[in-house]
Design a binder for these strands. Structure first.
Lengths: 199, 199
DNA sequence: GCTTGAACTGAACGCTCATTCAGATAAACA
DNA sequence: TGTTTATCTGAATGAGCGTTCAGTTCAAGC
């Protein structure tokens, strides 16, 4: 027995990545074996090595692709407008984007320690670029007096943590709708940065 | 060769727990072997089983002890006072306590998925009890009109995430002192909940 | 000084791990 | 239809895993 009926690299490749993403998020990178991933796809373990150099590369690619797409998506969203408007847009975007990709988000900040040093540096750089978008908004708001920020950098860390935390408790179909959560968090973010000007 | 010179159960036991805490935090539960822990202590792997039933129990005990101590420490701190004063005290306590125990904090919310279902339920219950302390403060502030909270429960999640996030970036000897961080975060927390009354 | 038992070793158990690769097979193309 | 080639299998490699346990040694109590 060898090649399976209906097998195709354009199908198997993505399915491996989807299975790895789901399993890594659920059980953790170190706790998931290549055999488990292969079983999820319905293929033998050896087949995975036609699509990835090794297990480490599989993790790295998932994280890199997630962050690259995040950066691409972000750059389309928040241009122009007052710092207040931009912060609202950022908060709503961040929550919406992250709620759509719980597995990728989870992996991207839970599995950093399982990356090789070089891979870690690459991922950290991408994450930094994303967080700098928020920092820029806060700095602009601080400079023009629209926000009251003793320390814009620290405020950025605080807001990112707060916003990302939504993925930890939000459940689709729960008490609050997605839009409600986005609105309420955006409002909290504005308050936290001490917005002074009106909307 | 067998029993080592100077060996003592009162010494080896804690050292095993310390080594496990450090290694689990650094590399993750699943990525750390019992042999690694033993080597860190300077002992053979078999010795660990004189101090723990198995690897799972080692993780569970570390998490349970951390959360139990956290609850004990909290109950001493925040009694009486206005919701504003209590929220400030909670924020300062939370940050200070967590900055003192980065490894335990990291494990307690990163390794939840490596717990057996029963152990997970126990740990989640403890965590819930801690977070309820904050919820009580927010609810009190909301009830008496001192805080403007559309949703106290959600605000609690947001604040916990924001405050705990400090452990992710704070470095001893960095630009900001611990006290400065505590003060600034407490101020952000107050703003986020829309405090209306003066200090 | 002798006995007892706590503390630890070191080897072994049966598994599973990531990874490799020669061989088999189905799809694509002539 | 026949040939090529991309795709996948299945077995094997060597290493490491959690855990057990008979045996060894040191410290303490008599």
């Amino acid at each position: 027995m060898a090649r399976k009926i209906g097998s195709h690299s354009e199908i198997t490749g993505p399915r491996i990545r989807e299975a790895a993403l789901r399993l890594f998020a659920r059980h953790g990178f170190a706790a998931v074996s290549m055999r488990q991933i292969a079983a999820e796809v319905g293929v033998q373990a050896g087949t995975l090595y036609l699509y990835t150099a090794d297990k480490q590369a599989l993790l790295f690619d998932l994280m890199q692709d997630h962050l690259t797409e995040l950066l691409t998506a972000t750059s389309q969203i928040e241009t122009g407008g007052t710092p207040t408007a931009r912060l609202i847009a950022f908060a709503r975007f961040h929550i919406g984007y992250h709620l759509d990709r719980p597995d990728a988000v989870f992996i991207a900040y839970m599995e950093l320690r399982n990356l090789s040093p070089e891979n870690f540096a690459t991922i950290e750089h991408l994450r930094r670029r994303y967080e700098d978008r928020l920092q820029a908004i806060l700095q602009a708001g601080s400079d023009c007096g629209e926000f009251a920020l003793p320390d814009a950098r620290m405020a950025g860390f605080a807001l990112i943590a707060m916003l990302t935390g939504v993925t930890g408790w939000y459940r689709e179909g729960g008490r609050l709708s997605r839009v409600e959560v986005q609105t309420l968090y955006a409002e909290m973010a504005l308050r936290a940065v001490g917005r002074r000007a009106p909307d």
